[in-house]
Amino acid sequence: MFAFCDPRTVEGLAWFACYLTTGKHIAFYWSFGTVLLLLAVTAPLALAFGFAGAVAARARFLPLRLLGRTYTAMVRGVPDIVFFLFFVIALDQAIEWSLHQIRCPDWTEPIRTGLEFRVCPQAKVPPSAAPQGVHQLYGFALAVFTYALVFGAFAANVLHGAMRAVPRAQTETAEAYGMSAAQVFRRILVPQMWIYALPGLGNLWMILIKATPLLFLLGVQDIVYWARELGGMKTQAFDYPHPDWRLWYFLALLVFYLLFTKLSEIVIARITRRLSRGQATMAGEDLRRAAA
């Protein structure tokens, strides 16, 4: 990084300046971006899954309703970590298996021999010749999908509850205006439910943040992976040998998470205030009084 960085000669502060800017540390700093990106992509996707789940759980069509209910109940009963341990491999194989059926209809060799899973080369995702970046992106996408699926089940719970919490009088009024069921859903129920869903969704966001250290289980090189890797004792085989420093690296992660959750709390409080305006809730009433 710096011109004066020769691992054999630098000492003291300069040593640290050089040590903290090695390629490995830069990768560590980028991995914070990975975590933030995961959160940014997963949150809306999980919300979409949750919305679909909640709508399915309310459906009049019985099989659809059962599907929605099972989805929310099943994922809630199983610890997320257990789910992560086998789901990603399963998902990966499912994708390749489907592609295999489409692209190689006349492939004769068996896909499964013993424990081995082998599809034709055209069905490999991503193709094995693809650059490493593509593989990492694919791994990241699988992780996002898995997180979204798990947290979508939680979100479905929250949204389902929120839809039930919208005062009946509001939907009744809409019906009296002659709106169809779909119109009531689109114009009244969905816009009005957010204030009831917000406390739950806010909590869910916090849970999601605190679940990100499990990302390394899904094969993504995240901050926990790098903290372990960098903190571990380094012998003379490395440019910057040092004893076991994992405690300090993990303390840094702790501070990162504390700051991040605190910041989230503040932002959520702001949004709640914003959404409460004009609502038939206690908070909305308080805002009205304060303004009057």
């Binding site: 943040i209 605190k210 250290p213 993990f250 992660l253 702790l254 998470y257 504390l258 959750t261």
Partner: peptide
């Protein structure tokens, strides 16, 4: 501190 950080850590 305990609610703001992951149990893993």
């Amino acid at each position: 501190v305990f609610r703001g950080s992951p149990l893993f850590i």
